[in-house]
Design a protein around this nucleic acid. Sequence first.
DNA 1: TATATTTACGCAACCGGTTGCGTAAATATA
DNA 2: TATATTTACGCAACCGGTTGCGTAAATATA
Lengths: 347, 347
Amino acid sequence: MSIEDRYQSNKEVTLIDIANELNVSKSTVSRALQNHHSIGAATKKAVLELAEKYNYQPNAIAASLFKKSTKTIGVIVPILSHYFFSTVIAGIEEVAYKAGYKVIICQSHELYEREVIVSKTLLSAKVDGLIVSVSKETVNMDHFQLFLNKNIPLVFFDRLPSGIQSNSVSVDDYEGAFKIVEHLIEQGCKKIAHFTGPLNITLTQNRLQGYKDALRKHNIPVNDELIYECGFERAQGITTTEKMLADQISIDAIFAVCDPVAIGVMLTLKQKGINIPHGIAVVGFNDDPTATVIDPPLTTVAQPAFEIGVAAGNIFLKQVSEPGGAYIKEVLKTNLAIRQSSILKNS
Amino acid sequence: MSIEDRYQSNKEVTLIDIANELNVSKSTVSRALQNHHSIGAATKKAVLELAEKYNYQPNAIAASLFKKSTKTIGVIVPILSHYFFSTVIAGIEEVAYKAGYKVIICQSHELYEREVIVSKTLLSAKVDGLIVSVSKETVNMDHFQLFLNKNIPLVFFDRLPSGIQSNSVSVDDYEGAFKIVEHLIEQGCKKIAHFTGPLNITLTQNRLQGYKDALRKHNIPVNDELIYECGFERAQGITTTEKMLADQISIDAIFAVCDPVAIGVMLTLKQKGINIPHGIAVVGFNDDPTATVIDPPLTTVAQPAFEIGVAAGNIFLKQVSEPGGAYIKEVLKTNLAIRQSSILKNS
DNA sequence: TATATTTACGCAACCGGTTGCGTAAATATA
DNA sequence: TATATTTACGCAACCGGTTGCGTAAATATA
């Protein structure tokens, strides 16, 4: 079957078709397409012209098999439709694109079982690297250890695992929490509640510790009754606020573990007619776009989601170019975004 | 090198290693792993035990090459970090996961050139299908035609192309726009402005047409001075509102092409001290989560982003299982989400 | 007991690229 | 003019799976 016939009947046009048409070997065609120095100019020209004419697209799968590199990066996130995660992925994709990599995205839906399954799928898919924010259920890390065993670069972000050593990108959760709680104290708040994330997650613990230490520094006793285990979702912010109000505990501020929770808190307080910030001040963590939409605008800890993705991508690239290097643990700085939801003093 | 040695030194454990260890051929191992009927029970057991022991992961790349199916779906969106797109992708990923497919995500960043490049990358990556929302720059569709030529299922969503016939999932943009403008008219609005998306996009035109026809139905003349070409971003909503206010045109409502723009409009109006809805009513399109966060809550056309992704994924699966079938064009219904930003009458 | 069928494998080609090595012909150097 | 080097390719193995076909040994049937 001639190359013309194959093209017309929508079959794949391969190296071999071009080689047959030109009466050269497929190695020559392969080298011509790579602009290899040992191929004559006339041959190169003829190959490129045919490739163009018949819309030849190299089969990346075949090349991957031989080269043992698929030029893909696997990414696992708990959920894709959250601003933070989709923005981190946008950052990863940007770095990946520029370096000629593709990105395969999987969601764990916060389920350990699904995380294990998709990680094995990505292992079979021979991704060149894996970038992960672990699910809130995950305790056992064996499925990630498999990547390290095979020397596949592994980068964690946001939700860092415990009990496994690898690369990571995170923000200084402790410091961010510390600073924003200190800010509340400076505004005169003395009874500050904290709505935490799932407690087994490192990030949750770090923010909680920052909260506690800020209180202690300013001689405010830590009161466990003001610490509510909540979660990362707006809906959990709403239910936890309702629970807290039912408890009739006297507070003057709430530090929510993340912006979606803070938004849930604010919507509930507003609905109950409680003034923000003068009845209860509210602060969050993330600086999602909604923080500037809600009224009053939400004071929060800005973490650079896109840059986190870029950093994770760059760590991957560095590990590829320098295999066997030490693990890289990058900690990005946060900034306070102070807005009306926490301003009680004129300054 | 024995399988044990390979395992210990973190080399890939392959079919051949298992075959050598058991003194059978690799075809037998391959069939044993597939639970093929022609393999004896004892052999199957021995193979599975070794595979388990040495953590064998099949090389999906090798299988793909022979089977001519990579079990991946390519997805191209203009931008990942928008709620609408990330939620559609979540829907696609859900369907893909259940059917054993992986999802490769690319962003066009609204650039034609980049869309062409990533589509060719996905073609080389031998995706089994492609799901796309086209960039706002894209007019020429040749790069998508390549997929159709090779009988690779292609599904468009949200931003449908003109000049190319394929599968598609969309919402009834015309009807959604018509209904929400009619709602404004019922509330007593007579001077309704429209902030459009990029004009070359079908979706923009359909919403614009719905706006015009609703006005005409109620005998309100269409005034081109009330139609502002805007875009899809919050920032564009802000600048267009400022431009409109500078024009000193008298209006009583704004229909924004999408929620991010509507949010930009509202933030600007609030900043200028204009009451919503009594000074100017505002409505959007999408029902992003921010619609319920802003004060007053935003009336909008709810389109089921997740379901759009699910529908696109299912169309892909159907085309895979029934090759050569007719193109499927699915149009999902929208619902009005009526909130305070447009309520002028007590009912 | 002779033949037919079933069971349980192995052989070898195949998917479409890449690359180390070898070599004839052309050109350069001694 | 004899030898060394360069140019421009081809051969064949390789990556790690899958599958059509063939067949010896075991079992079933006539």
